[in-house]
Computed example of a mutant assay.
Amino acid sequence: MTDFFNQHGSEILSKSVEHIYISFFALLLGIIVAVPLGILLTRFQKVANVVIGITSALQTVPSLALLALMIPFFGVGKTPAIIALFVYSLLPILRNTYIGMKSVDWNYRDVAKGMGMTNMQSIISVEVPIAMPTIMAGIRLAAVYVIAWATLASYIGAGGLGDLIFSGLNNYQPDLIFAGTIPVTILALLADFLLGALENKLTPAALKEREE
């Protein structure tokens, strides 16, 4: 075991950093696009069904096929991988944001309006905080998806822990497979834990007390 880490330790570390880089930016793009879009769609019901239907259809495209489709447009490397993973992150974040915002009791909106808040102020100060647990649940799910699917990015030269996994498979080296698989699992669990802690901080205290 010691010899293995002496030989591959630096590679595991560098591949983990690449994996985090790809996953982080794909998830960040997903949040930047899907959360505002999900909020906006609650104001346009007919458009919402179409947009969510399209994102659901994109989710059904096999991961490798989507990665391959990126190559003619963006070449190989990290950029097409990030874009493909970004597409996969959209549905859970968009759907949960939409559901969370739609489930906010209209009484809260009426109170906000009665206090003289504009529609935007109501969304930012009242509706989003109330919907935060549902929105964060979508982000946490997307994070786990993205980290897991990022292993396939090595097929298009993006690097990451998938390089170790597929190298181990191709060369019949179980140690390399475990060296790639275990860090991916740890990263997924760590991301879920950290986002759960963030959710706890962003959720209004009154809402947490009511859930308890």
Rank of each mutant, 00 (worst) to 15 (best):
M1D: 11
N6M: 09
E11I: 13
I12V: 09
S16R: 02
E18Y: 08
S23W: 09
S23R: 06
F25Q: 04
A26K: 12
L29P: 02
I32D: 08
V33L: 14
V33A: 06
G53Y: 02
S56E: 14
A57R: 07
L58W: 04
T60L: 05
V61G: 06
A68I: 15
A68Y: 15
M70L: 07
P72N: 05
F73N: 00
F74E: 01
V76C: 01
V76F: 11
I82V: 15
I82M: 14
I82P: 14
I82T: 09
L90G: 05
P92Q: 09
P92L: 07
K102W: 00
D105N: 15
D105L: 13
A112N: 07
K113H: 08
I123W: 01
I123G: 05
S125A: 15
S125I: 08
A131M: 09
T134E: 13
I147N: 09
A148N: 13
A148H: 13
A148C: 07
A150D: 05
T151A: 13
S154F: 14
L161Q: 03
D163C: 00
F166Y: 15
N170H: 01
Y172S: 07
Y172E: 01
P174G: 00
D175I: 00
I177W: 02
T181G: 10
A191R: 14
A191P: 10
D192F: 01
F193T: 12
L194I: 13
L195T: 07
L202P: 05
L202N: 01
T203G: 02
T203S: 05
A205V: 11
A206V: 09
A206Y: 10
R210V: 05
